[in-house]
């Protein structure tokens, strides 16, 4: 109760990040583009949320920037580059398919191909021939064995 009262007092004094409505939306077509681009740009003060989905005032300010760049006729690539120039590829929720980050896209495909190749090689391999049965002790060897000869002799008696 006391905490709630203190929080209310702090809010009354302006000790909070004020919510902002952001700039006015553009016409329907361009605003749809603003929202589509905003969903691909990571909010820097949130946890894995896009600037289009975050309610934080920093994200609102960044979406305003996207709106300003769209209104100025900038291309999608130029707008992404504005944020990449400040935060690196980290700013993009879908990493670009060029340069070092292309590995992120290619690695899963490569692993699937390697796995398929491995399975195919295993299936194609001929099953190993069953091991030959152990030959019985050869008769000749048995005849030469003095112990066996002694046993036979004892049995005959």
């Amino acid at each position: 109760m006391i905490l709630a009262l203190l929080a209310s007092l702090a809010l009354a004094q302006g000790d909070y990040a004020p919510g902002r409505a952001g700039t006015d939306p553009l016409d329907a077509e361009r605003e749809a583009r603003v929202q589509r681009l905003g969903k691909q740009i990571r909010c820097p003060v949130c946890q894995g949320v896009s600037i289009a989905d975050s309610p934080s005032s920093m994200a609102r300010a960044q979406l305003d920037k996207v709106r300003e760049l769209v209104a100025a006729g900038r291309s999608d690539e130029e707008i992404y580059q504005y944020f990449v120039a400040r935060y690196g590829e980290w700013a993009l929720l879908s990493p670009s398919k060029q340069g070092v980050t292309s590995v992120l896209w290619l690695a899963p495909v490569l692993l699937i191909l390697l796995g398929t190749l491995f399975i195919w090689l295993q299936v194609r391999k001929k099953p190993a021939a069953p091991p030959a049965a152990e030959p019985a002790v050869s008769t000749a060897a048995a005849e030469e064995d003095p112990y066996l000869a002694a046993v036979r002799k004892d049995l005959q008696q």
């Binding site: 003060v45 920093m58 300010a61 305003d64 400040r86 935060y87």
Partner: peptide
Amino acid sequence: PKSTVAVDYGVSG
């Protein structure tokens, strides 16, 4: 007032 300078400078907090 609209955090435009903060956005231009790549502020993250």
